[in-house]
């Protein structure tokens, strides 16, 4: 099953990327995520590992994930090492002079296949789809408000906070 949602953020791709590159900030915008703990590897970038769980129905599903693609400021992707099979991608593309189209793709599959696997994937899709939409909306709000805050700080002559 592959889900995809996108949103236009009023900030250049590099600004959005800088926000996404800080893995500590993911709990602020990823909807439904109940766990996002560092699990070895570098803190960020290719090879970074996290234990990630997201609530879907009656269970928190996920597992160990690893960053497998890191191409600033365009693409990043993680893939599951253990737990549910998943591959998540943030795809950033310029949309106009100072905007970015952010696409969030979530491909997942449950083990075993069969009819129950197929039904589970389809039953869980609406809930996951909603999480993707909410995550992008929260990302947009956070990036744009941080951009505004930085601009305001620059105007006042004080150094911008990360």
């Amino acid at each position: 099953m592959r889900l995809s949602k996108s949103i236009v953020v009023s900030a250049p791709p590099q600004v959005v990327w800088d926000y996404l590159a800080d893995l500590e900030k993911y709990t602020q915008f990823l909807s439904g995520v109940t766990r996002w703990d560092e699990e070895g590897g570098p803190e960020t970038g290719l090879g970074a590992r996290r234990r990630m769980l997201i609530r879907v129905g009656s269970a928190e599903v996920g597992g160990l994930i690893e960053m497998v693609e890191w191409d600033p400021p365009n693409d990043m992707a993680w893939s599951s090492v253990t737990g549910i099979d998943q591959r998540v991608r943030f795809r950033l593309r310029a949309a106009g002079s100072s905007s970015t189209r952010v696409e969030l793709r979530y491909a997942y599959g449950v083990a075993g296949g069969g009819i129950t696997g197929w039904i589970s994937e389809h039953v869980s899709a609406p809930s996951l789809s909603k999480h993707l939409s909410l995550s992008l909306q929260q990302l947009k709000r956070l990036v744009e408000s941080e951009k505004l805050r930085s601009a305001a700080t620059e105007r006042s002559g004080e150094p911008a906070e990360a």
Binding site: G57, S58, E60
Partner: peptide
């Protein structure tokens, strides 16, 4: 473990649809 993994979808369907089950504070 492989058998459990393969059968989690059925358990998930039963738990989610039939019982609307919720487990809190597994941490």
């Amino acid at each position: 473990p492989d058998y459990i993994r393969e059968n989690l979808p059925l358990s998930w369907l039963m738990a989610t649809i039939w019982y609307r089950a919720e487990v809190r504070n597994l941490s």
